[in-house]
Design a protein around this nucleic acid. Structure first.
Lengths: 281, 281
DNA sequence: TCAATCCTGTAATTTTTATTACATATTTCG
DNA sequence: CGAAATATGTAATAAAAATTACAGGATTGA
């Protein structure tokens, strides 16, 4: 785990002065961490020994060791997006793949702009409510993402179910939905009328809808509690669903991180082999 | 001008020992420049005073000043596209989503480096062979991607089928596979032994396997005609499948673009409304 | 309420790093 | 060819940074 993520993870459990250091570090990442103990302490409004305690709590034996790891993190991070896209050595100038990935990266950036944090947090809140059941469903192409998301959510929380089968069975499954339950719907253009209709029925049953859609907004948006618009343009004759899946993974990750130890025990009980909880990985 | 460019510009006019330092600096940018004078001198095979002469020649009064500027450069360079995307007003500072998308973007860049163009082109060739049938299948989490890819490929070419249902039905479906047919398998850690076994059976029937896997390579790689390794790390306790889906979409896109007009007529016949062939979109 | 534990900052000490002095080698130019 | 200039590395010194010792305040639990 990179230091940045490590600090973000540890933030909540740090004592007061060390928490100040963590915030100063993250807010001025990475340069302040590559400067001196005195500068970081001054920026955070604390003292040098407190900085040493902070890095010791993170598992580093000394500040020079902490900085060594940080330099490696930074080196790796600079070998990402822009840096790597520019390296055109043998066998990695893959124009078709590069063009495709560039479009995806642009969609991700645009989606990040399009999704307000407040909406994202609201979506996480909906998914973190374990007392309510959670149903997921998508359209002809996006339903695979709903299934993917359901497969993961089932590991980290109870009462998760993917509506499956043909449209004709949806009405039967609808009978299980109770007021307050959460329905995650994926619908991008062209919007499926049967999915829109299901959304209406879900709202009639007082379910709360989280809609993951495109920027033009599926009609389901009118009835949805939370709407996450994802950019799908890909310079193709068909829409890319990567950003929907990326948002799905971000939600999964966020809900997962919020889980209690009990949920982790549940994960172990399910004996999931996809999730890498083994030491050393 | 950033230090990196400054050094590149000055390289030609440096005396021998300083030129060695410049090369060592650029080759290990930026971490070696953020370490000590002694480490840079040792790496370059020169001495500490030579390092000081080097930075002095670049116009810096001291090594700490040089490092201060270098830290600022690095901070600016880490403002990646995704991070730069956040400089557009309130409500888009979405740290959880940004962190997640940044990881995905990094995985995409790493995957672009990991997949040789020759392998990617070979995969496209396999998928463009309409005379052979094409079967797709994945593991517990990746099978949704196989289904997604199958749903798209069915539109642009004939004889596409997603192995579905339980493991027990795979053997029955295997009977349809003829020599020369193509099997697209998705398998990431922890690899499923039943999927590995199916791969062996497919090869026994002389099918050609396109394997989309992680960088550690599923055992199926031994029998596969083409292997596309996708970076799945996401600083999580579970693997991200975005890069597998991105590779799948790139393959779909590439095969789609290669299609004849007859295939486009086929698309119309299928009355697919997901594919946006309307003018202006 | 009080003892134990944890947290924190100041100051002193130790260690590390940067810088300078000096001598030798190499290159350049008249 | 030789003097001057430039380049270079070793060793010593100075400065900076990291670390430790210590004392006081805050928090927690019995």
């Amino acid at each position: 785990m990179a230091i940045r993520e490590q600090v973000q993870t540890a933030l909540g459990t740090l004592p007061g002065a060390e928490k100040k250091i963590a915030h100063a570090f993250l807010a001025n990442y990475p340069s302040i961490g590559l400067s001196t103990i005195a500068e970081l302490a001054a920026l955070a409004g604390t003292s040098a020994p407190t900085v040493l305690r902070f890095v010791s709590r993170l598992g580093f034996e000394s500040y020079p060791e902490f900085q060594r790891v940080l330099r490696n993190d930074v080196q790796a991070q600079l070998m990402s997006p822009l840096e790597r896209a520019r390296t055109t050595g043998p066998d990695i100038d893959n124009p078709a793949l590069k063009a495709s990935f560039a479009g995806i990266t642009a969609n991700l950036a645009a989606t990040l702009r399009a999704v307000p944090e407040s909406e994202f947090e609201a979506a996480c809140d909906l998914l973190s409510d374990h007392k309510s059941a959670c149903y997921l469903l998508g359209g002809r192409f996006t339903d695979t993402i709903a299934a993917y998301m359901a497969a993961h959510l089932q590991i980290i929380r109870p009462n998760v179910r993917h509506f499956d089968g043909q449209t004709s069975t949806w009405r039967d499954q609808l009978l299980d939905v109770r007021p307050g339950d959460v329905a995650v719907l994926f619908d991008i253009r062209r919007y499926q009328s049967d999915l829109v209709r299901l959304g209406e029925l879900l709202v009639e049953r007082k379910a709360r809808i989280l809609l993951i859609t495109d920027p033009w907004l599926s009609p389901i948006a009118r009835s949805a509690r939370v709407v996450l618009p994802c950019v799908v343009d890909a310079n193709r004759t068909w829409d890319s669903s990567i950003t929907l899946m990326a948002v799905a993974e971000a939600l999964i990750d966020r809900v997962s991180r919020a889980q209690s130890e009990a949920a982790r025990a549940r994960m172990q009980a399910l004996e999931d082999i996809h999730w890498n909880n083994l030491p050393g990985r």
